[in-house]
């Protein structure tokens, strides 16, 4: 069936099976492979994207359910060649090792900072509790998100548009 949604601000239309999961729609239909596909069981969180402003696991969301909704992926974080503070934070604080969990971590981090621009460590750890890092690099991930909180972009409306 035909489904139309906005992905990173652009309207996209595809003819898909209703059973197609959002993660496969994003990766295979739109070829936005920044969103990773991990456990398939809503445990690991590497497939985290935003649907209508909420961070969700795209392996447990049907693409058709996102018809007429707005999806944001990791590709939408940087604006006009400028990295988002969350991305800069992961660079500055070495928030990734193998990088597999990173897109999900960053989308969750960005969602957290939208709700709570100045989260403490406990809040950050709770927020990323649905994102697994098998390199166990959590210390640096927490620092990266704190870095982003301390270095907000000049115009935050631009990065969330």
């Amino acid at each position: 069936m035909q489904v139309t949604m906005k992905v990173n601000g652009d309207e996209v239309t595809r003819d898909i099976e209703p059973r197609m999961l959002l993660v496969h729609f994003i990766r295979d239909e739109l070829e936005l492979t920044g969103t990773h596909w991990g456990c398939d069981t809503s445990n690991c969180g590497t497939c985290t994207v935003w649907v209508d402003g909420e961070a969700v696991k795209s392996c447990t969301t049907l693409a058709v359910m996102c018809g007429a909704r707005e999806v944001h992926t990791v590709e939408g974080l940087a604006k006009g060649g400028e990295l988002d503070p969350v991305q800069k934070g992961f660079m500055e604080e070495h928030g990734l090792q193998c990088g597999f969990c990173t897109p999900g971590m960053m989308m969750t981090a960005k969602w957290l900072l939208e709700k709570d621009p100045d989260p403490d460590e406990e809040t950050i750890r709770e927020a990323i509790s649905g994102n697994l890092c098998r390199c166990t690099g959590y210390e640096n991930i927490v620092r990266a998100i704190r870095w982003a909180a301390e270095h907000p972009a000049d115009d935050t409306s631009e990065v969330t548009a």
Binding site: S42, A55, T60, T108, S129, G130
Partner: peptide, 9 residues
């Protein structure tokens, strides 16, 4: 219950 991402949905 689960984690924040699951709780969002």
């Amino acid at each position: 219950i689960a984690d924040p991402l699951v709780r969002n949905r």
